[in-house]
Amino acid sequence: MSVVQLFNGLVTGSFYALVALGLSIIFGMMRVVNFAHGAFYMLGAFGAYVLLDSWQIGFWWALILAPLAIGCFGMVLERLLFRRLYALDPLYNFLLSFAVATIIQDAMRLRYGAQGKPYRVTSQLLSGVQHIGSTFYPKYRLFVIVFSILVCVVVWFLVERTRIGMVIRAATEKPDLTRALGVDVDRWITPVFGFGVALAALGGVLAAAMQQVRPSMGEDLIIVIFAVVVIGGLGSIAGSVVAGLAIGVIAAVGEAYYAQVSSTLVFIVMAIVLLIRPAGLFGSVEGA
């Protein structure tokens, strides 16, 4: 196995990290196991496609505009739908998010077809391949690694070092106490949801250049992302990022040696981690 395979693992891993990060934040704040996260990821990719196809807006702007738009859409959904079920068992919001995912995915299929649409990064800077040792590696993929890690660091900074982040962390860990201390937690719910959705959409924009933009692209991803989040520890930001990258690399190694098992590998890892560390790698063991 060459070193380049490791890069591949990092690319996959940085996607997992980005999308899992959003899912983890939403779960931490709202206790919503958001099944629609995969659909938002897919919408991000379609966002990039539509921007280029309809308005000739290229990749760099799409990187900002698409997550922004999808994030706003997520906030609308939160206000209209998810908000209604917070008081109930999380199961209900899980089912609701499943319904939302199904509708979004199908609407995109009706509009763009099951086969989807191609997307190409127009920037000269990112096209072509880079020589690494005796092999070649696409420049774009190297960019994806660097960019995603950068985003993860920024998010970590926001959550750990700013006032908003402090509120989020407090609300995630001890919602009752936070409220009792006079912090208006509810005010932050919608923006935080939107932010989590935007992260998924950002993952989608990055994926658009590497995969066909198609309605089902988030469907099988979401279940892996669930596993990543659980391995990292629910609600843990560092956990999502580390687990995402680790799973990406493990899957790549798996593909190199025993390809059949690579898609099952993440679940094997999850079973082992949970049996040893009940709350995931970075989760705090509290309660029962």
């Binding site: 395979q5 591949n8 996959t12 995969q211 099988d220 991803l221 790549a252 593909e255 390809a259 690579s262």
Partner: peptide, 8 residues
């Protein structure tokens, strides 16, 4: 089912 990524 595939992950849609064949780069490996």
């Amino acid at each position: 089912p595939s992950s849609g990524d064949f780069s490996s």
